[in-house]
């Protein structure tokens, strides 16, 4: 065997070993999800008897957990709430922060813009815990605007503005040449038209990144929605899951169905948009 052949063979063996290690790690990673999926089709007695068996030994395969859990956690209602809040807040975040970033970049030498931008950067280190009490006492105690979806949506936007402006700021500064805007102005565009017809369409990659990161954060957020929306008809999926667990924690079959239902929408979306989500999060993480 020549030197080259041996090296090639060693490399192949190394790849096979790495592949096996990856597969084992992968199974460990999705083990909790597999457990939920196999137990969701079993009835309570079977889960208690043996949570590891594939099919229930006493009552066998059952679909009964789903309708019961859906009814008790009002699945479609909370799903709708989560969807409205996530979609509206994401769109608003993209529009509002890209426009703010635009005006800040193009007035870079104006002290006021520098001040606002520095404030935004500095505010990114503030954890939510420092803001939650005053937030509740200002918007609950003084202004009494809690328990409206729009309050939560605007708060979500307000919290994400700084990070999103930072990302759009970088994109506009490096990717949009000023000459392009000047050309549009000479061709007769107003500032407003220049923004919508020239600059905004060129920001698509950043729009996707900001949109994906924030949509995931809004969809999964628990603490802020639980403080703002305390009435049952307004619950989002994470709050409804928590409330459901508090009431039915002993009815383990129902819990399995509720947990699977809570995870399913985003997992289905992930199957289709997997590439975009991974890329979006990666580029967002590296920039942030």
């Amino acid at each position: 065997m020549t030197e080259n052949e041996r090296a090639a063979r060693n490399k192949k063996i190394a790849h096979v070993i790495m592949w096996i290690v990856l597969l084992l790690l992968f199974i460990c990673f999705i083990f909790p999800f597999i457990l939920v999926v196999i137990n969701v089709f079993k009835s309570k007695v079977d889960i208690v008897a043996n949570p590891l068996s594939l099919i229930g030994t006493r009552k066998g395969f059952t679909l009964d957990n789903f309708p019961a859990a859906m009814e008790k956690m009002q699945f479609w209602k909370v799903f709708g709430n989560s969807l409205i809040i996530t979609v509206t807040a994401t769109i608003l975040t993209i529009l509002v922060s890209s426009m703010t970033a635009f005006v800040i970049v193009r007035n870079g030498r104006w002290k006021f813009c520098t001040l606002i931008f520095s404030l935004m950067i500095a505010s990114m280190v503030i954890p939510f815990q420092v803001l939650m009490l005053p937030l509740v006492s200002i918007y609950g105690g003084m202004l009494n605007v809690l328990n409206h979806r729009i309050t939560l949506i605007l708060m979500h936007v307000g919290f994400s503005v700084s990070m999103a402006v930072f990302m759009f700021h970088g994109a506009i500064k490096t990717n949009i040449p000023l000459a392009l805007e000047e050309a549009a102005t000479i061709d007769g565009c107003s500032r407003w038209q220049t923004w919508w017809k020239v600059v905004f369409p060129l920001l698509k990659p950043t729009i996707a990144t900001v949109g994906i990161i924030n949509a995931m954060a809004y969809w999964n957020d628990y603490l802020l929605p639980s403080l703002v929306l305390t009435e049952k008809p307004l619950y989002t999926i994470p709050i409804a899951t928590q409330a459901f667990y508090g009431t039915y924690s002993t009815d383990i079959g129902l819990v399995m169905a509720a947990l699977l239902l809570a995870m399913l929408p985003i997992l289905i979306l992930y199957v289709f948009l997997q590439r975009y989500i991974v890329e979006g999060v990666a580029s967002g993480a590296v920039k942030g």
Partner: peptide, 8 residues
């Protein structure tokens, strides 16, 4: 795991 909220 990052797709799903901490509560769930």
């Amino acid at each position: 795991p990052n797709l799903i909220g901490g509560i769930v």
